[in-house]
Amino acid sequence: PEEVRRLVEELYRKGVSPEQVKKILKKQGIDEREIEKVLRRIG
């Protein structure tokens, strides 16, 4: 979803590592598979 992409990109631009991005967003209840999809697209 758009909102997940925005959150991931925001953290990524701040220099947060992909592993940390995953941890942070998982705590917020976001599906890990969604996060990984976005990270793959960015990375």
Rank of each mutant, 00 (worst) to 15 (best):
D31N: 07
R40W: 12
E10T: 08
K37A: 14
R40S: 13
K37W: 08
V8T: 03
Q20S: 09
Q28C: 06
E3Y: 08
K26V: 14
I24D: 06
I30D: 00
S17Y: 06
E36W: 03
E36S: 04
R41E: 15
G15D: 03
R33P: 04
I42M: 12
I30Q: 03
G29F: 04
E34G: 02
V4W: 11
E32T: 05
K14G: 09
R6E: 08
E9N: 05
K22T: 10
E36I: 05
E9D: 05
I30C: 04
Q28A: 10
R13I: 07
I35V: 09
R6A: 10
V38D: 01
V4F: 05
R6Y: 07
E34M: 11
E32F: 02
E36L: 05
V8W: 02
K26C: 04
K26R: 12
E32G: 06
P1S: 14
G43H: 15
S17M: 07
Y12D: 03
R40E: 15
E36P: 00
Q20M: 13
E19I: 12
P18L: 08
P18F: 04
R41H: 15
L7F: 06
E9K: 12
I24R: 07
K37R: 11
R33N: 13
K27M: 11
P1E: 14
E32L: 05
D31G: 06
Y12P: 00
K26I: 13
G15R: 05
R6P: 03
E9R: 13
Y12S: 05
K27E: 09
Y12K: 06
I35E: 00
I35G: 00
I35A: 02
V38G: 01
V8F: 02
Y12W: 09
K14P: 02
G43I: 15
E2Y: 07
I24G: 02
S17N: 08
K23R: 12
E9L: 14
Y12R: 13
E32M: 04
P1I: 08
Q28K: 09
I42V: 11
K27H: 10
I42E: 06
E36C: 09
K14V: 08
K23L: 13
K23F: 10
E19L: 13
K26S: 12
